[in-house]
Design a binder for these strands. Sequence first.
DNA 1: AGTCGCCTGGTA
DNA 2: TACCAGGCGACT
Length: 271
Amino acid sequence: MPELPEVETIRRDLKSLILNLKVLDISTDSPKQVQPSLKEVKKALLGRKIKDIKRRSKVLQIFFSNGVIILIHLKLNGRLLVRDKSDGKDKWQHITLSLSNDKELRFSDSRKFGWWKLIKNKEELEKVLSDFGPEFLDDLDFEKFKEILSSTRRNIKVILMDQKVMSGVGNIYANDALFLAGIDPRRTADKISSDEIKKLFNALEKVLKAGLKYRGASDQYYLDARGQKGSYQNHFLVYGKTGQKCLNCQDKIKRIVVGGRGTFYCPSCQK
DNA sequence: AGTCGCCTGGTA
DNA sequence: TACCAGGCGACT
């Protein structure tokens, strides 16, 4: 579920909850999700302290005191929950990192699409992260954004969601930003005018910041690291609102498929 | 560029 | 029962 606002919210939570705790054990009932293997990961982490937690695109990076890093991708349904050891099992709990202070970092994932991946050092990390395009809120300015859009004939919505082109935007925020900018999600990127690109750039910044402010969108699965829901779902502009009235006009929100993904837009406001 | 697969759960 | 799902890589 998680896009930039959700993953970033979790990152901030984790930083305040588990920094400097020591790894006592790790277990899983879904070994395919742990790479290269539970055994390797256990060997690398046991007795190590959590020193930092970063995010790149939708991937979290946990840095340990011996220099190894665990990358975590939540894909569609992953949750990272910090619980007390004595708390009852979480639903769909598949990986458990036992920590000092009687804490646990639990990975819950109903569809089992997410993964944990052991990275040995910073060089290896750089290599993995170099595949990602610029971070939307940190290192993508308007000029760069404009350059990217005007140099491709791919579909605008698909481009916004391509992490190799720019990082952090998924289906929810892409839909809402295109609505705010008044752009039909089926359009080709290089056919979008400079004025519209400006609107879109501002719209993306606006929806991502709203997502952060409301601590993410909890439609069905997303929870923060404390197990609390976000509230951006109460502020969706078009996402998931098929048949509901547009916020700007009398028309109804329509659902179509673009790039194989559910896409929501107002046929009157988005041209 | 479009489709399929990974897996499972929720809802019409 | 059928269809839908916030991601993403592999395939054609």
